[in-house]
Design a protein around this nucleic acid. Structure first.
Lengths: 334, 334
DNA sequence: CCCCGTCATCGAAGCGCTTCGACTGGCCGC
DNA sequence: GCGGCCAGTCGAAGCGCTTCGATGACGGGG
């Protein structure tokens, strides 16, 4: 492996000149630049990341913490991940992958060892122990999600409250007035993931504002859970004509159950789902859905991390507006 | 951030002693070790990764290259990823995530910059351009999948040929003699992913060996693709009584199509699928399946990389034996 | 009693890069 | 015609760690 001094020798200049050609931090004449670049190409020189990190205290690496076992669907996580990696590359950064199960120790390890310049943390919970830990690090961090108290740490996420409201007004626009929310499994609420409760309170508020008759129920996973949830809804809200489904796992069994009990979607029952595009289109009925903009969220998280890194101030928090995509699961009230 | 010399001063020893306590490469008396460790704990010292990499030419980081857009299902990829990250941590390594779309350049970048000690590459194709590139790196690498010519690079994967044979003998054991293979979409074959052709040739061979009547067809994605594929199969192999499905996306539409055309699974038609556990159990019928051992493959890939790193010789290639899990989609021939 | 081998520890030389201060010509303005 | 300035370049001092050879103390064998 050639070093910077090999390049310098080959180009007939000093090490520092090569360094300045590479970083552009000082003016170097066009001819010299050309010679240096030629030498670099010829030798196949790559600056040594460790040496660079040592000398400059910058690693060009971002840490990304992903959840291992989750209630939020795996494809969505993967979308976040690829968005983050792709966005990081546009800033010439790479991504070190950590898992949530390492908890606070993982953060401290990579930050303490100066392996990364900044951290992006997914799946933060209401009262996440990692938040105070992040605050103690010398590297900046960005949360994907909203804890109760972000303690000054930057956050990005879909505006779930506004999304719930959008779903309701979309259905209200079709004439529906009796609407039920099929929520995530109780485990999600208990775990303290705030998107569930943010969605729920947005739902409740908008329902009151729009004068709708609504009920909301969490939904256990599996066909039995769906059946139980539907039964409860029918009992509490007879003549319900539309469902808002904030539970990806429930979608398929739900459609199965409705079909086998003879309720047609959308003729008898309209549905709006909160899920990524491909889930909405991959089911037996193409669902009208509020999109989960995983790609945008990931990209914005990286943008925020980069602003933080070069000292620019960033809005502490970004809530992305919802987008509803009309497909085949909403009809006017029967 | 405290440095090793802060620790040394606090413990009243030299820097090198601290280093030897940390690495264990030379004997240090118990008392000295205790003092050093106390100082480390008290100061909250973490060795600087860059400095360490510079001095030792070891980074304790593995690169993992994942495909971005794929025909193999996202949850499977994610299983590989989490297995690799988890296994890497047991060796005190971290994982740098690269995407396949960076191609050869990504590999050369991280290897050239000495950001990683070894590379693990997923989704390798028949004649992958990355293979010669990997050969040129000074870091060892492990492929997940089997190219036509691995050029001496280590490989791990499920033994797809043996898997096909297992599926057939499982069905033959239930008395089936007329069996069709619903293969991946033609795009997969064209892209040159070898697992498809390995499976197909295993299928053909075992079919001959067992004296079965079989046909094999690729299957375009979507409901129409499934319908077309079934039609072809029925035309070429009337009275087909079992299907081997090597196409995760086709599974749901396939079951839909069979149901709506009145063919019951497994009474009228038995099915063995090749897919991960959760897919097999998440469908309307719990499918008997040959498991895709993503977790094991990921773990073994890391083990192989580590052996390569400390100079131990490893088998150049590991093919994992298939496991068939009996569920509700296989019945004796009607 | 001396020599030698062992064990535990130290000192210093890098590893490859960035960065800061200093140096050199040329060119301007007065 | 001289001081000052700027563009362009160089030299050297680290950055924090590992590692190798050297050193000192100590005990055992001759």
């Amino acid at each position: 492996m050639p070093t910077i001094s090999d390049v310098a020798r080959a180009a007939g200049v000093s090490m520092s000149t090569v360094s300045y050609v590479l970083s552009g931090r000082r003016p170097i004449s066009a001819e010299t630049q050309a010679r240096v670049k030629a030498a670099i190409a010829e030798l196949g020189y790559h600056p040594h990341a460790g040496a660079r990190a040592l000398a400059s205290s910058k690693t060009s690496v971002l840490a990304l913490v992903v959840p291992l076992r989750v209630d939020v669907s795996v494809p969505v996580i993967m979308q976040f991940v690829t968005a983050v990696v792709t966005a990081a590359r546009t800033y010439n950064h790479d991504v070190l992958l950590l898992t949530k199960d390492e908890g606070t120790a993982g953060l401290e390890r990579v930050a303490g060892a100066t392996m990364v310049d900044a951290l992006i943390v997914m799946d933060v919970e209401r009262d996440d122990v990692r938040i105070p830990a992040l605050g103690r690090l010398k590297q900046p961090s960005v949360l994907i999600g909203f804890p109760d108290d972000a303690a000054g740490i930057a956050c990005v996420d879909l505006d779930f409250a506004a999304t719930a409201a959008e779903c309701l007004s979309h259905l209200a626009g079709h004439g529906h007035t009796r609407i039920a929310l099929v929520g995530p499994s109780p485990a999600v609420y208990e775990r303290g993931t705030t998107y569930a409760s943010r969605f729920l309170s947005g739902f409740t508020e908008a329902s009151a504002r729009l004068g709708l008759d609504t009920v909301a129920h969490p939904c256990e996973p599996g066909a039995k859970g769906v059946r139980a949830c539907l039964a409860q809804i029918d009992a509490e809200l007879p003549d319900v004509s539309a469902l808002v489904v904030h539970n990806e796992e429930a979608l398929l069994p739900l459609l199965e159950e409705l079909r086998s009990s003879g309720r047609r979607v959308p003729q008898d029952l309209s549905i709006v789902a909160i899920c990524p595009r491909d889930v909405a289109t991959g089911l037996p009925v193409r669902l009208t859905s509020a999109d989960i903009p995983a790609h945008d969220v990931g990209t914005i998280a990286v943008d925020m991390a980069m602003s933080l890194l070069d000292g620019r101030r960033t809005p502490g928090t970004r809530l992305l507006p919802p987008t509803i995509i009309e497909r085949d699961s909403c009809a006017p009230r029967p």
